[in-house]
């Protein structure tokens, strides 16, 4: 069986999503199949892909470094027609879904979107498992004909076993034509921290009674804005009139799962912490070294938020003197595309 894995920006090895797709492709092609990896850009980790099970690597040589969905589809359509692999695997990301959908339309392929599991039947045909009706039921689906099968897999659903080397991989560059002038980018804007939905924010900066006043909350809001996040508050701070109820976090407010939660002057009462239990990184600033918040925190700072926050804001502004908003401060590792680059 021949399987292509098509990886977009942010999905290349060593990103976990790309590695998991490679491992899934290796599992499906065993024992005698071949995995071809398509990397949608020039600054790509060819060696890492080879080390994780790719027998052949195709690099989309896009003019501006990264191939958007339309450029990738243009470059791959003829190649897929010529080589006729049995299946293509993509991540169910925005980039992956658009490439999969456009390729399916062009090639008349069978599309199995949003799968959480893949198996092969006796005839080598893929069977996908996908949740339906709000995940209350699970459907098992398969292509009816012999056409190309394009599968998008939801992140986290692939097999966890890492792929292994498959001998020296060959890398081939596929030239891409210029970007089609289909969409004009008029720029970006940052949603103010007081308007950004708490559930949408990756970073939440919240204040409690320790902030001291409504004016103190301006610092919380400013820090949230610099980090591209949302402002939150404890029930006590909301009751004091320092923040609106829509910003309240906890059992009586919103339950959130941000990547980073910065607790400013928050003691850490259980009914508040229940609202942020899923946060991945908790930074706590409090004057009381015995405050319960420090038992939840990954980074604990004993200090007055009214002194630490101005210093933190000043340090963030020093990072990029020209930065006036979060867009200039945020981003992935150097050389890797941020989420914005995945657009086109």
């Amino acid at each position: 069986m021949s399987v292509w894995v098509i990886l977009g920006p942010g999905e290349m090895p060593p990103a976990s999503g790309g590695l998991a797709l490679l491992a899934e492709a290796r599992r499906l092609t065993e024992p005698a199949g071949e995995v071809t990896v398509v990397l949608a850009g020039t600054a790509v980790p060819v060696e890492a892909s080879a080390a994780h099970g790719a027998a052949r690597i195709l690099v989309l040589d896009a003019a501006d470094g990264w191939a958007g969905p339309i450029v990738a589809v243009e470059a791959l359509t003829d190649r897929l027609r010529q080589e006729c692999p049995e299946a293509c695997l993509l991540s169910a990301s925005r980039w992956g879904s658009e490439v999969a959908g456009r390729l399916a339309a062009r090639l008349g392929a069978a599309l199995l979107p949003g799968c959480v599991g893949l198996t092969r039947d006796g005839a080598g045909r893929l069977e996908g498992t996908r949740p339906v009706y709000g995940s209350r039921l699970v459907a098992r689906v398969a292509a009816t004909g012999e056409s190309l099968q394009i599968v998008t897999l939801r992140p986290g659903s692939e097999s966890s076993s890492p792929g292994t080397g498959h001998g020296p991989a060959t890398a081939e560059r596929i030239p891409c034509t210029g970007r089609p002038d289909w969409i004009r980018d008029l720029g970006e804007e940052q949603v103010p921290p007081e308007a950004l939905d708490l559930g949408e924010a990756d970073v939440v900066v919240a204040g409690g009674l320790g902030v001291g006043s409504r004016q103190g909350f301006a610092l919380v809001e400013e820090l949230a804005g610099l980090l591209g996040g949302a402002m939150g508050a404890t029930r006590m701070a909301v009751d004091a009139g320092w923040a609106p109820f829509a910003r309240q976090i906890g059992l009586t407010g919103r339950i959130i799962s941000p990547r980073v939660y910065v607790a400013c002057g928050i003691s850490g009462s259980p009914h508040h912490m229940d609202g942020v239990r899923q946060a991945q990184l908790v930074v706590a600033i409090n004057t009381d070294r015995h405050a319960p918040i420090f038992t939840y925190a990954d980074v604990g700072i004993q200090g007055d938020v009214r002194e630490v926050l101005p210093a933190l804001i000043a340090a963030l502004r020093r990072l990029r003197p020209e930065a006036r908003d979060a867009a200039a401060l945020l981003g992935g590792a150097a050389g890797m595309p941020g989420p914005l680059d995945a657009r086109r």
């Binding site: 706590a284 600033i285 700072i301 992935g332």
Partner: peptide, 26 residues
């Protein structure tokens, strides 16, 4: 958690280091 105690500027650098390691800031 090891509590960090220091000047506000040191505390700010400590937090920035954690945010950098986590990937929230470049």
């Amino acid at each position: 958690t090891e509590l960090f105690t220091g000047t506000p500027a040191q505390a700010a650098e400590h937090i920035l280091g954690a945010l950098r390691r986590e990937g929230s800031i470049a």
